[in-house]
Computed example of a mutant assay.
Amino acid sequence: MDSKLLPLVNKIKSLKHKERYIVIACVLGVALILLSELVPSGSTKKADDGMDYQEYIVSLEEKTQDIISSIDGVGKCKVMITLCETDESFYASNIEENTDSGHISKKNEYVFYEDNNNDSPVLIKQTFPKVMGVAVVCQGGDNAFVKERVISAVSSLFGISSAKISVSKISR
């Protein structure tokens, strides 16, 4: 064993039972912290890792189509969803205000984090637009009972009025 470590090991051996465990736990804790710096972390989320606008629409349409096609009498269906505006992202920023001799000046800077040697802004929140209207074309679209259930389901899913939902029979 290294001559520099031998006195330290002997000192640890001379400690009482509980104290020895505390020292060992501290050493393991420091070792884990050092190891965590070496292992790349997948938990940091880049601003552009979120779902984009087109993926959002496609996902909504697919999920809605799956739900509607499982309603009795609907059969095969297609769904198109229109949205209000586009998505919106909110980033963290530092705001500095100076009031000097009656003049107010503001300085606004985005907060960045380093990820793989790139600076990325810190995304606080990303909102997607609300559903404006839904068109459903299905095999059972000419049946009034089926039409009512589809309109009810879509209205419940997106919180929109029945006037913004169109249900039609699929053409052959």
Score class of each variant (00 low, 15 high):
Glu97Asp: 11
Ile33Gly: 14
Ser89Leu: 03
Glu88Leu: 00
Ser69Thr: 11
Leu6Asp: 06
His103Thr: 10
Asp115Val: 02
Leu35Arg: 06
Arg20His: 05
Ser155Cys: 09
Ile71Pro: 02
His17Val: 07
His103Pro: 03
Ile57Tyr: 08
Arg20Trp: 02
Cys26Asp: 10
Asn143Gln: 11
Phe90Thr: 12
Ile165Met: 00
Arg20Ser: 04
Glu61Phe: 06
Ala153Arg: 03
Ser69Met: 08
Tyr21Gly: 12
Gly140Tyr: 04
Leu38Glu: 05
Arg172Gly: 13
Asp87Pro: 06
Lys11Val: 09
Asp119Pro: 03
Tyr53His: 13
Ser93Gln: 12
Cys138Asp: 07
Asp48Ile: 03
Thr86Lys: 12
Ile68Met: 04
Thr99Asn: 13
Gln54Lys: 11
Ile57Asp: 07
Val137Lys: 11
Asp115Arg: 00
Ile160Trp: 06
Gln54Ala: 11
Lys130Asp: 07
Glu114Cys: 04
Ile33Gln: 10
Ile124Pro: 08
Thr44Trp: 08
Ser101Thr: 09
Ala163Glu: 12
Ile104Cys: 09
Cys77Gly: 01
Arg149Met: 08
Met132Leu: 10
Ile151Thr: 14
Glu19Gln: 12
Gly140Lys: 01
Val79Trp: 05
Ala135Lys: 11
Ile68Arg: 02
Ser161Met: 09
Ala47Met: 01
Glu61Val: 08
Asp115Trp: 01
Ser41Asn: 11
Ser59Ala: 08
Ser156Val: 07
Ser152Gly: 14
Ile33Pro: 03
Lys169Asp: 01
Thr127Glu: 13
Asn117Pro: 03
Lys164Gly: 10
Ser43His: 13
Leu8Glu: 13
Asp119Ile: 10
Ala31Gln: 11
Val39Tyr: 09
Ser41Cys: 04
Lys130Tyr: 03
Met1Gly: 15
Lys45Arg: 09
Ser70Gly: 02
Glu19Phe: 08
Arg149Val: 00
Ala25Gly: 15
